[in-house]
């Protein structure tokens, strides 16, 4: 078990299973087929860490998001449709596209998608697929192997 401290942009208090990418998460490429899938899988062929893995209702651990400026609206739509990751845990400072998705979901959607950033490279190096990740409202993230 290891504890990390980040910034709670949209706070939460829950435990989820981790799915991890060390590459930038291309939101459009990853999620554009989400409504054709029973559970949202990463559809980005350029991301070997995540390709074809289920990301829906998982704690998505990532450095930052990359790609099209449609990114925030896809995250927002995914939260509204119940097809989004359970939470987003960024090792770096959140990028403007993911930040838009976080805020849009927080203000305009009924369901929550907690978002934490600035968890550090150690967090991304430590956490692995299948770990249990507990998030606390003060920005604490606890990873259980």
């Amino acid at each position: 078990m290891k504890e990390f401290k980040g910034r709670a942009i949209v706070p939460g208090d829950a435990t989820f299973e981790a799915v991890v990418t060390k590459n930038g998460f291309n939101t459009l490429a990853s999620m554009q087929m989400m409504n054709l899938q029973p559970k949202t899988k990463c559809n980005d062929q350029s991301n070997p860490d995540l390709y074809k893995q289920i990301i829906e209702k998982k704690a998505l651990c990532l450095p930052l998001t990359i790609g099209s400026t449609t990114g925030g609206m896809f995250l927002f739509a995914a939260v509204k449709e119940g097809k989004a990751p359970a939470c987003l845990l960024f090792s770096q400072t959140i990028d403007s596209l993911a930040a838009a998705g976080a805020v849009l979901a927080d203000v305009w959607a009924e369901d929550d998608m907690p978002v934490y950033d600035q968890l550090g490279d150690d967090f991304l190096n430590y956490v692995a697929n299948g770990d249990k990740v507990t998030i606390k409202p003060d920005g604490t993230v606890i990873v259980n192997k």
Binding site: S68, T69, T70, G71, G72, M73, F76, D95, S96, L97, A100, G101, L104
Partner: peptide
């Protein structure tokens, strides 16, 4: 993204890499 980088760099306008909706 391609329009924002052009407007900032070639035209000298000021714009962040905003998401759709924002």
């Amino acid at each position: 993204s391609s329009a924002v980088v052009y407007a900032n760099s070639v035209l000298g306008a000021r714009c962040n890499r905003n998401s759709g909706i924002i």
